[in-house]
Design a protein around this nucleic acid. Structure first.
Lengths: 209, 209
DNA sequence: CTCTGAACTAGACACTGACAAGATAGCAGC
DNA sequence: GCTGCTATCTTGTCAGTGTCTAGTTCAGAG
């Protein structure tokens, strides 16, 4: 909005992306309209098409960015935990959920393939990086008595589904507030055992069945 | 489609709901159009409004039905397991995921509050029934050495997020196919320990951290 | 028979995403 | 200076959508 009356906006792509994030976080992705974004940016209704092609193109660009930030957040949390002598896996699980809470719009877009351009090369690459990262944490965090390799995938999936389910339910507002009386982070610490005791959960995880 | 040229359709509400389910399962909820549903039903574009008010009304009606079927499926699975001397909780977790896979459209609508009429009384009631059911399974499945009551909520949440995350990732197609080479049910059995050994998982759940 | 209310039609409105054709700006090479 | 070139943005148009309103049809109760 520095020089409002220029023909060339100068930073339209970035402006549209951040405005879209705000709109998604407020009303959900379905309520986002390219035309409204263009109006807010002081630009004609056809301008967004040049940068993103179509609606899916915009969401795909957001998803790629989100996945990269997501990877960075998880790596960061894992390395910090490792530096403190704690396990990477629970720390990254906590980071997973907190990222979703901190960037709900990005998270929503990242995991809603119906909004995305499935064949986009950047998206596929970003997805691959994220998957490799998750799997890496699990492989490193395995105790020495490792079972066959397939089990690593299983444990990665367990951690992934656990964190993803919590993030999803939280974001959609489907968790009864009574379940998190002292906020999401405290709840995550209780669930993942990532409290100040340093990430080694004290109970047996899922209990006897 | 029995008497196609009557002024009164006779069963429009039901026709629209099942057509909507098919459309959601095929193209996602965002792609469903009231006008297209009306066309398919051989009815004018304004007719759906009479039964559902607006778009959110249709999705809300579907969500209520979905929640009821969901409760029935979980109860059924839990009771069958109990009758076989097995624990209710893992059986209901398995039923949770399999319900999502069997009724993807209902599941999607159930957990997408942006599509729904949040204040709908029927919806609130159905949600309450589902939540109570889940909590009940966990409370019953606790070992005798029960901790304070709050822990029941925590363990319910653990089970819930786990099943929900798996269902969500599976439905959205975000799971690498390699992770479920032999189908979803086999994967669930491995994750939840609900194989033919009868629901008592043999390992320690989440491993040492 | 009339009356009533539920079910449905038909028209209009504002809005959307997508497309195509043209206008503008900034920049390299001359 | 000038000329083209390309990315950027405008303008106009189209089919499609949800929602609103007023009118029409029908079934059944009195």
């Amino acid at each position: 909005m520095g020089k409002p009356d220029r023909y060339h906006h100068g930073d339209l792509r970035e402006t549209l992306m951040s405005a879209a994030l705000v709109a998604i976080a407020r009303d959900g992705a379905a309520a986002v309209s390219l035309r409204q974004l263009a109006r807010d940016a002081g630009v004609s209704h056809g301008a967004p098409a040049h940068h993103f092609g179509d609606r899916a193109g915009l969401f795909t660009a957001l998803a790629v960015r989100g996945l990269d930030m997501f990877c960075a957040a998880l790596s960061d949390a894992a390395e910090k935990a490792a530096a403190a002598g704690q396990a990477r896996l629970p720390a990254s699980g906590k980071a997973y959920v907190l990222f979703a809470a901190a960037h709900p719009a990005l998270f929503e877009v990242m995991f809603r393939p119906d909004l995305l351009d499935r064949d986009d090369a950047d998206l596929k690459a970003a997805r691959g990086r994220a998957a490799a990262l998750l799997r890496g944490f699990v492989a490193e965090s395995r105790p020495v008595r490792a079972d066959p390799e397939s089990d690593v995938g299983l444990e990665a999936l367990r951690a992934w589904t656990h964190a993803h389910g919590l993030a999803t339910l939280w974001l959609a507002g489907n968790l009864p507030p009574a379940m998190a009386p002292d906020g999401l982070e405290a709840l995550v610490d209780r669930l993942f055992g990532t409290g100040d005791n340093g990430g080694c959960d004290s109970d047996d995880g899922r209990g006897a069945a």
